[in-house]
Every structure is written in C-alpha cells, then in structure tokens.
Design a protein around this nucleic acid. Structure first.
Length: 645
RNA sequence: GCCGAUGUAGCUCAUUUGGUAGAGCGCGUCCUUGGUAAGGACGAGGUGACGGGUUCAAAUCCCGUCAUUGGCUCCA
C-alpha cells in the first residue's frame, strides 16, 4: 500500500499502481469526469499513469492552467493524428500547447495547405474525439525510437530524439498515431468536445531562419461547445477594439500607399489628441526638472559610427542619404541619443550641473521588416517621448525613482491598471558580454531592485541575462485587445555611450569623471501608446484627451442661434465642443453622439433658451438635468483636472 | 524577408459556374421642426489596388507589383 496526500493534507491508503483518475473517482464520479491530468509530487502526469510510491497528488481540471495545458497538448496530438490520416506521409516537427490553444509544425511535403482545409481536418479530429481513443504512454529505448522514426522518414523527430538521453524517451499512442512526446496527456480523446483551427503560418524549424520552413497550424479546443462560442465571441469583441479600426472610424490617423507602409499620417483629430498627451508629459517633465531640446531627423554616418549604431544595425536600416556634391553620407536617426550626447558635449560640465535631463519628442526611423508592421504599434517612423539623463553614479537611484514617478503619473492619468514591469539584469555567468565596470553594474542593478521594491510596482518580473549589453533596464508592458503584449515605457541605464562619446564632468575633486546615462521613454512611442490607449478605452478617451468633449444638440433649427451662443461660451472656456445642426430629430442626434462616444451631449430647446441653461446628458449614463453653462464648465474642469492630482 | 489569406462606392460587405457592378450605413438636396439611442422622399458616388497575360468577352482565370492582414524571423 502507498500513501496519497491530497492538497487539503488528507491522506489515503491505496494499492501500488493506483492512478489519479481512480483517486478522483473515489472522491466523486463527477470529479473523475473532469480530471484532465494530475500533479504528482509537483510533476504533471497523465491521470491514468500508475503511481507506485507515496505521493502528493493534486488533480487538475479545466480550472487549472496545467489542466488546460494538458487538454491543448493532447489536442495538438489529435490534430496531428487527423492530419496524418488525411495527408499520408507528412512529417511532424513539434506540437506544443500555448497560452491559448496549441499548434503543430508540420512538413506537408507536396501538399498545399490553406485555411480551406481546416474544416476537413476539424471533422476528422471530431471523429477521432468521439471514438474516445486512449492516450497510451510507452517508454522506449533510444534505439527503438530511432528505428521507428527512421521508418517514418521523419528527420525532425529523429533530430529531437538524438538530443535526448536513453531512458527518458516516451511515445504516446492515440488510435493509430504514435508520437514522440514527454506527455502528459488526457485519459482519452473524448474530453475534446469543441474544436476550432485558427490559422496557418510558416514557421522555421527550430526557429532558425536558415532552416526549412514548416507549416504551422494553430488551433484551440474546449471541453464544452459553449466555451468555444464564448472564446470566438471574445475574439470578435476584441476586433471591435482594434486600434486600426477605431483609428479609422474616429479619423485619428491613416496610412498611404504612396507615402509608404509603416509611416503613419496623423489626421487633425489624432494630432490634437497626441498634442494633448505631449503637453501633459511636457508639464510633468518640466516639474521634474527636464529641459526640452530639438534635434534634426538625420545625422552624419560618422555620428552613428561613433555611437555604435552603424556597426550593429547599419545594414538592416534605411540606407544612407548621400549629398550630391560633397559626397557626405547621412542616416535617418534610429534613436535620439547620439544627438543628445552631442548636446551634452557642447560645453563642459561640473558635478554641480548634474543631473542634466534632456527631453525631446524625437521622431526616429527604423526599417522594420514588412511582415512585422502592425498599425501604430509597429511602424517605421515614430516619435519617442525620449529623454536622456546624464548623472553621477550617486544620483542613479534618485533619477530612477523620478522616472518611475513619471511613468506612474501617466498610467494613473490614463487609468492603466493592468501592466507588467520587467526588470532586465545581466547574466552574471557571462560578464564578458557587457560593457561597463563590475562595480557600476552591481550598483545600478541594486538600485533598480531597491527602487522597484520601494515603489511596490505590481506584476514585477525579473529576468537575468535580458539586460542590454550597455546596461540594465526596466520595461513596462501592456496587452492589446487581442492579448498581444507590447512594450510601452522603458528606463535603461547606459554605460556605453558615455564611453564612446568620451563624456565628462569635473568632480568636486577637480578630476574628470564619466557620467552615467539613462535613456527613458514613459510612453515608449506616441504611436504605440496611442494605439494601446485606443484599445484600452475602446475609443472612449478620458475627457481631457478626447477630440470632442461636448456636442450641442438643438431640439430644432429654431434653436441653432442659441446653440451658437452656447458654443461661443464653451469655446471661451477652452472646452472642445461642436453643434449638430442637421435637421434630424433629437433622438437621432443623441444616438449618433452616443455611437461617436462624445462624452457630453448638451440639449438646447425652448426651455433652455428661455432660462439660459443647457440640458446635459452624459455618454453611456443618460440625462443629468439642467445646468447653466458656467456650472457645466466647472464640472468639466474638475473632471479634467483629476489627471494632475 | 518567409508561409497563409485579403484588396469591389467614404465605411461594412454582396455579385452562384467568365457576359461591361449591387445593398446597408454615410454624404447631398428637398419635405419634416421634433425633448433624451435610427422621421420620410429623391439623388450623387466605383479606372472592381496597380500592371501585364489568356479569352469574342475578365471584378471573376493566370503572372507580376503594391498594400493590408494572421503567424514566423528580427527588434535600438
């Protein structure tokens, strides 16, 4: 007999070879039907794999991430089984579960696969699922494994097997399909009740651009049909929040084939919105001791050779601009820092001058690969809310705190609650990779960790070995409507450029010292930030940002004159308002304003004109009653000013 | 850049197998002058992304280019 300990610490005696599924059945038949896999002494196992010694057992269901991982991993096998039946002779690469669903990389040989084939594959998968095929685990020797896949002529599996040690190789069989797999899997395919293949993509074998490109098919499955319907609905709703769509609807930005892909054109309303964001940040930065600078969009090749950008990225960048007569070469700037370094160097500095904080909304150009462009989140020309802080080592921590304060102010003003903070430190086993002294690195990394703890930043992850070669950094990331992660703000310590540019300041000891540089961009780029903001708010921007704050709706054309009077009053108070002068009924005007997400609707008719008032309706909420214009302006100003509190 | 998909009116889409294009919304004019989420009538709008080919005939079939898009790779 062995002792099984459950998560509530209850202990039970079982025969050797008992399975998690049997333990579940012992608790209740309903639970047994929902067990996908189980955690045995911290390792996820098949629910039907015999347990032969004392163990801690936690049953995994659809409520556990690991349970869903098992479902999706098994689904990848089911898909492979279906494909193996429908397209004999195809070869399989890897087929893991992912955060939401699974994929399988497959070499289809001469078959041409597109989304048109999905239905056929889904149907075959459903057929096998209904057969409730068992997933059978089998331990094999390396020689057996090699023999099997040599027979199948599958060089991908053979490559994987060759990297494994004898004695740790397992196969899983479902139906007639055998796959090299570590497991674990569902008890049988019958758990899979809803299947949807999502898309097909090319993927290089082992992620290596030099190797063969396989066909990757993504899919998702669920235990209940309803879950799939809900998931597909979520995708549809997320699409409605897509910044590319809303940006078009609200006339914020556009792209032009003639101008070139990845080069956004900001329309008047988008430009206004962006300008308000910039002004907000400028104000915050001024208060924090920043100074604005302005630099040109190009610089001589020598500048970027000095900064090191040329060597590292020159060939993959927009190519140099040549002057016709002198034969000089200029680069579009991919970063603002070299220009700012030259500003620092324009005069000598004393330790008393530091820190110097140079800020610029600097537009940069990077040749992103065509397949990588994505609306405003990935563009070839974009504007960073850049600043470079030049400081002494003893000032590093305070400067870091100052930057985090700015980032938090912005996130608060825009109601970003859901973000991740990533701290990237160096890999201390591979110090050769990094520039700068050991002492400086240790000091900077310690400062960052301390600041992060003091500021109690939520969702902080620390990654070792992710630092740039020139210094540790802290990044702020958010998710877009479709769950993709985007980096927004960044704070990076840099020991490299001060060296390259031979920057100096005179210390209190009358000796020359090298300053530390901090790159920071709280928004990241205006383009990406606005994109994320659009998706975050679904286009319902906060009042202080929105293009049109209020729309005046005259009950009939008889009151247009009064409406204009109200408009003038509002404009004089710096409110952004318009009038809907169409000869439409009030219900219609209200509907259109609601759909256009205009925060306030101001209804004026006979009564309002007589009493010199406006009837205020708030978007999404409804009628707020009668206000004088002064009362309304006061209300709006109070609402707007909350961003600075 | 690579694999897959897409490109028809300002927007969202339709046009069964090739026979010179339609709808809704929006827009314009007129009627209507209305009180908290769609009043009515009429009308204007399209080189079917662009270039080439096949055909008596191409939005439709083929090739190329550009752009968009889901991934991969890359990412300062």
């Amino acid at each position: 007999m062995i002792t099984i300990t459950l998560p509530d610490n209850s202990k039970k005696q079982y025969k050797e070879g008992v399975t998690a599924l049997e333990i579940a059945r012992d608790i209740s038949e309903g639970l047994a039907r929902n067990v996908l896999s189980a955690k045995i002494n911290g390792e996820v196992w098949d629910a039907i794999r015999p347990i032969d010694k004392d163990a801690d057992v936690r049953l995994l269901t659809s409520r556990d991430e690991e349970g869903m991982a098992t479902l999706w991993h098994s689904s990848a096998h089911l898909m492979a089984e279906a494909i193996n039946t429908l397209y004999p002779g195809v070869k399989f690469g890897i087929g893991p579960n992912i955060e939401k669903g699974f994929y399988y990389d497959i070499d289809f040989g001469d078959y041409e696969i597109s989304e048109k084939d999905f239905e056929k594959i889904e149907n075959k998968m459903m057929e096998f699922a209904r057969e409730k095929q068992l997933f059978i685990r089998q331990e094999v020797s390396k020689a057996e494994a090699i023999e099997y896949f040599t027979g199948k002529n599958d060089e991908y599996k053979l490559e994987l097997i060759n990297e494994l040690d004898d004695g740790e190789i397992t196969f899983y069989r479902s139906g007639d399909f055998v796959d090299l797999c570590r497991g674990p899997h569902l008890p049988d395919t019958g758990f899979i009740k809803a299947i949807k293949l999502l898309n097909v993509a090319g993927a290089y074998w082992r992620g290596d651009i030099k190797r063969k490109q396989l066909t990757r098919i993504y899919g998702i499955t669920f235990l209940k049909k309803k879950d799939l319907t809900d998931y597909l609905q979520f995708i549809e709703e997320a699409k409605l929040r897509d910044h590319r769509r809303i940006g078009k609807d609200l006339e914020l930005f556009t792209f032009s084939q003639l101008v070139g892909s990845g080069l956004p054109l900001w329309l008047p309303r988008g430009a206004e919105l962006r300008e308000r964001l910039e002004n907000f940040l400028k104000k915050v930065q001024r208060e924090a001791g920043y100074e604005q600078v302005i630099t040109p969009h190009i610089g001589k090749v020598e500048l970027f050779k000095l900064s090191g950008h040329y060597d590292k990225y020159g060939e993959d960048s927009f190519q140099p601009i040549d002057t016709p007569i002198e034969g000089e070469q200029f680069f579009l700037k991919p970063m603002n820092c070299p220009h700012h370094c030259e500003i620092y160097k324009s005069k000598p500095h004393s330790y008393k001058d530091l820190p110097i904080r140079l800020a610029e909304f600097g537009t940069v150009y990077r040749y992103e690969q065509s397949g990588e462009l994505h609306g405003l989140t990935r563009a070839r020309g974009f504007t960073q809310d850049d600043a470079h802080i030049f400081c002494r080592p003893d000032q590093l921590k305070d400067e870091f705190i100052g930057v985090i304060d700015i980032v938090m102010k912005i996130f608060k003003a825009l109601d970003f609650k859901d973000f991740i903070t990533q701290i990237s430190l160096r890999d201390s086993n591979d110090k050769e990779k990094y520039i700068g002294s050991d002492e400086n690195w240790e000091k900077a990394e310690k400062a960052i960790l301390e600041v992060s703890a003091e500021k109690k930043l939520p969702n902080t992850i620390i990654k070792y070995g992710e630092a740039a070669f020139y210094g540790p950094k802290m990044d702020f990331m958010v998710r877009d409507a479709l769950g993709r992660e985007w980096q927004l703000g960044t704070i990076q310590v840099d020991y490299n450029l001060p060296d390259r540019f031979e920057m100096e300041y005179v210390g209190s000891d009358n000796q020359k010292h090298r300053p530390i540089m901090i790159h920071r961009a709280p928004f990241g780029s205006m383009e990406r930030f606005v994109a994320v903001l659009i998706e975050h708010t679904a286009g319902k921007f906060p009042l202080w940002l929105t293009p049109v704050q209020a729309i005046i709706l005259p009950i009939s054309e008889k009151y247009n004159k009064y409406a204009k009077k109200v408009l003038t009053l509002l404009n004089n108070s710096d409110l952004r308002a318009r009038i809907d002068e169409r000869s439409e009924k009030t219900g219609r005007k209200i509907r259109d304003a609601e759909v256009n997400k205009i925060p306030y609707m101001l209804i004026v008719g006979e009564r309002e004109e007589a009493e010199s008032t406006i009837s205020v309706r708030k978007q999404g909420e409804g009628d707020l009653g009668e206000f004088t214009v002064d009362q309304f302006v006061k209300r709006v100003n109070e609402e707007v000013n909350t961003i600075y509190s």
